[in-house]
Design a protein around this nucleic acid. Structure first.
Length: 461
RNA sequence: UCCUCAGUAGCUCAGUGGUAGAGCGGUCGACUGUUAAUCGAUUGGUCGCAGGUUCGAAUCCCGCCUGAGGAGCCA
């Protein structure tokens, strides 16, 4: 039986006989003995192992270099050196796979994230990416735990969609047609009747509409899965393939939606602090010295709530000029969102009731019809982290709004049916999972918080 | 997609018209408690690609490719 290094570092007692398996991070040689630091991905810190001449096969230690895979058995002893409570005195070791130091790209020194992206198959062995992946895993666990504790059903909404009526962003077309010989109709259009689904098909850009179907059967549901946008956007906040969390609640108005969003963020941040303390300290020390403060700020402060109109009033009386001028009716720019979250409130806030013209057709029309029941949660440093709304549940108004947006109303037959048969007020929101991990860790680039980022011109690994 | 910047050794970078450089890494050696070990020696190049100007180009000009930051769009 082998031991997990994280458990040994935390609970390992002197004189215990243990076996570990992992990858060598560094080796420090001296005459007659060497220190080997081994990491198995279970924690930020590795276990320091002392191998001296008395160990069988000592001569093969020369091949134990950075990146090599190894199994070591020995006795735990208190460490006389600084930096670790205990260390492993090796009695035997087995070298599984060597790692040629001439060509192994990871060095002991710090690498740029840009370089690490070019070695996506090895970067997860670094301190930072290791910490990111553990935090990412904890976030995902926290999300499921949060919703499951509240009896939300996890719903697997489709990844392939045959209607482009979701209306958010550019879609990836999927097809089994021979692209070197595309069948054409008599009107010289692509003849999709010969394609796999007999019609154009795409990768999903949102599971919301299907989540609404499920909410109107099970009351509270959530989706958590991959989402695709074919936008040619090259920023530190966009991916072509990302994961999205979308809760949807029946018999729930906008207030309940804001309450859920607040409870959700607090829960996830607390969970990660509880389960990834070392990793979070690492981010605070090496990546962004404000992540711990931000986390406690999220957990401890009651989110403020203001309407869009109140937000505009605050921006208009701000003693500074914005690149984008402020007036009622504009969509809030990132500079506006950051001003509100970072300088006015200095904590997360929910902005509600945006102008009808700038929001999606499915958001519930307010009584004056000038605004809709939308909500965005704005956070310091990151801006919008959650976007959601109460959905329009009134059939006649929804039909009117679909027409006003010049959308093909026949495509929405099933969405309208939900308002025809047992319609109820319902609400939900969407959260970009990678942006949450970014927010949590302080990582500047979204490509470094997902194992294998897909962006324009980049689909390696 | 737009704007700005960048691309030189395995990595991080210096080098603004005249012999291709440094630190780190790697290799070899020394060292009985290291922690980014230390010390000594050594190794290492299609200067992104293609064209042009020039006696001479990493350096100046044109085009392209790739990356980063910002913007837009958004999650």
């Amino acid at each position: 039986m082998t031991h997990r290094i994280a458990d040994i570092l935390k609970n390992g007692q002197p004189d215990s006989v243990i076996t570990i398996q992992g990858w060598v991070r560094t080796k420090r040689d001296s005459k007659g003995f060497a220190f080997v630091e081994v990491n198995d991905g279970s924690s930020m810190a590795g276990l320091q192992v002392i191998v001296d001449e008395s160990v069988p096969n000592y001569e093969t230690l020369a091949q134990v270099t950075t990146g090599a895979s190894i199994e070591i058995s020995g006795v735990l002893v208190p460490s006389p050196g600084k930096g670790q409570r205990i260390e492993l005195k090796a009695q035997s070791f087995h070298l599984y796979g060597t790692s040629d130091p001439e060509t192994y790209p990871l060095q002991k020194k710090r690498h740029s994230f840009e370089f690490l992206r070019t070695i996506g198959h090895l970067r997860s062995r670094t301190n930072t990416l290791g910490a990111v992946m553990r935090v990412r895993n904890a976030c995902a666990t926290a999300i499921h735990q949060f919703f499951q504790e509240r009896d939300f059903l996890w719903m697997h909404t489709p990844i392939i969609t045959a209607s482009d009526c979701e209306g958010a962003g550019e879609l990836f077309n999927i097809t089994t047609l021979d692209l070197t010989q595309v069948p054409l109709t008599t009107e010289k259009q692509v003849d999709y009747s010969q394609d796999f689904f007999g019609r154009p098909a795409y990768l999903t850009v949102s599971g919301q509409l299907e989540a609404e179907i499920m909410a109107l059967s099970f009351k509270n549901v959530y989706t958590f899965g991959p989402t695709f946008r074919a936008e040619n956007s090259n920023t530190s906040r966009h991916l072509a393939e990302f994961w999205m969390v979308e809760p949807e609640m029946a018999f729930c108005a906008l207030d309940g939606n804001v309450e859920l969003a607040e409870a959700f963020l607090k829960y996830v941040f607390q969970y990660v602090l509880d389960h990834c303390a070392d990793d979070m300290e690492f981010f605070n020390k090496r990546i962004d010295s404000s992540v711990l403060e931000t986390a406690s700020n999220i957990i401890d402060s009651k989110f403020d709530r203001i309407t869009y109109s109140e937000a505009i009033a605050l921006l208009e009386k701000a003693d500074r000029t914005f690149e984008y001028p402020v007036e009622w009716g504009i969509d809030l720019q990132s500079e506006h969102e950051r001003y509100l979250a970072e300088e006015v409130f200095k904590k997360p806030l929910a902005v509600t009731n945006y102008p009808t013209q700038i929001k999606a057709f499915y958001m519930r029309l307010d009584d004056d019809e000038k605004t809709v029941a939308a909500m965005d949660v704005l956070a310091p440093k990151i801006g919008e982290i959650i976007g959601g709304s109460q959905r329009e549940e009134r059939l006649d108004i929804l039909e009117r709004r679909i027409k006003a947006h010049n959308l093909p109303i026949d495509d929405y037959w099933w969405y309208l049916d939900l308002r025809r048969y047992g319609s109820v007020p319902h609400s939900g929101f969407g959260l970009g999972f990678e942006r949450l991990v970014q927010f949590m860790t302080g990582m500047a680039n979204i490509r470094d918080v997902i194992p294998f980022p897909r962006t324009p011109l980049n689909a390696d690994f």
